[in-house]
């Protein structure tokens, strides 16, 4: 039933055909403050789902709930058919042990606004740390994969550099490579470009676009409306901890039903024109 340690093979092979992410009635509180208030959310396999919304609307919090960096207070989140953070037995939730939560997280890559590269490790070490330490992949194999990923993000020449020696855009591309090194089924991006200077945004977005073309399932919180227009399959507009509107990208972006979505988009678009 429970394996204390898994062999160095690809993550679980069991197939599940439903949506990659399915959240139903999710609530999250900090003390008396309700941050997420009944969110329903679905991402199909191979789909790019963009979450937009005003600052403080709970986008980051919700994203962190998906890989159990935050514990939810009510509702259910399933990733690839598995309940996040819990095991359901006879309708009751049982908390998973740290090791089990970690095993599920291996399959969910996450990219943070401020990169969070490991500053004491160089680029190669950053990338192979988890494949080696967590998945016990042999060094040679992990390195080969790292070189492959570095090429994919266009940073083959930075193998031995330390994060402090990289530009913001380079850091973020390394962070993406590091997450991909675990062969995740799902990638979560929390405003991956908002800490970057405008001229560096493009290089990160193009890596993400390539990833989307390769069929990765992605949930992206972003203020980059251009990216949403070009790449997103579905767009979710959140406000005050609730999903206000959700649907196929073209519809939500160009013809929103809700007044609040329309107002937000109008502001976002005019900002974009102003900065362009």
């Amino acid at each position: 039933m429970m394996f204390r340690r898994r062999a160095a093979t690809a993550p679980s092979t069991e197939r599940h055909d439903g949506p990659m992410v399915k959240a139903a009635g999710v609530y999250k509180r900090y003390g008396p403050l309700e941050i997420i208030r009944g969110v329903d959310f679905e991402v199909q396999r191979g789909e790019v789902s963009v979450i937009i919304g005003p600052s403080g609307s709970g986008k980051t919090t919700f994203l962190r709930c998906i890989n159990h960096l935050e514990k939810i207070d009510a509702g259910r989140i399933h990733v690839d058919g598995k309940t996040v953070g819990y095991r359901e037995v006879d309708g009751r939730l049982h908390e998973l042990r740290d090791a089990e939560v970690c095993r599920n997280r291996e399959q969910i890559g996450m990219v943070f606004q401020n990169f969070n590269l490991f500053p004491h490790k160089n680029v190669l070490e950053n990338i192979i740390e988890a494949p080696r330490g967590v998945r016990k992949i042999p060094a040679a194999q992990a390195k080969a994969r790292a070189y492959e990923l570095l090429e994919r993000v266009g940073l083959s020449d930075k193998v031995r550099a330390y994060p402090a020696q990289l530009s913001g855009g380079q850091k973020q591309r390394i962070a993406i490579a590091r997450a991909l090194a675990m062969d995740p089924k799902l990638m979560l991006f929390d405003e991956p470009t908002s800490a970057l200077d405008p001229e560096l945004v493009g290089e990160v977005l193009s890596v993400m676009k390539q990833l989307a073309r390769d069929g990765m399932t992605m949930v992206v919180v972003t203020h980059e409306m251009g990216f949403a227009q070009d790449v997103a399959d579905t767009v979710t507009f959140m406000s005050d901890g609730k999903v206000v509107e959700q649907g196929p990208a073209p519809e939500v972006l160009s013809n929103p039903e809700e007044e609040r979505t329309r107002a937000f988009l109008a502001r976002a678009m005019s900002e974009r024109r102003a900065s362009a």
Partner: peptide, 9 residues
């Protein structure tokens, strides 16, 4: 958080 998101205990 970064470490945990990579599956580290």
């Amino acid at each position: 958080e970064a470490a945990q998101s990579l599956g580290m205990t």
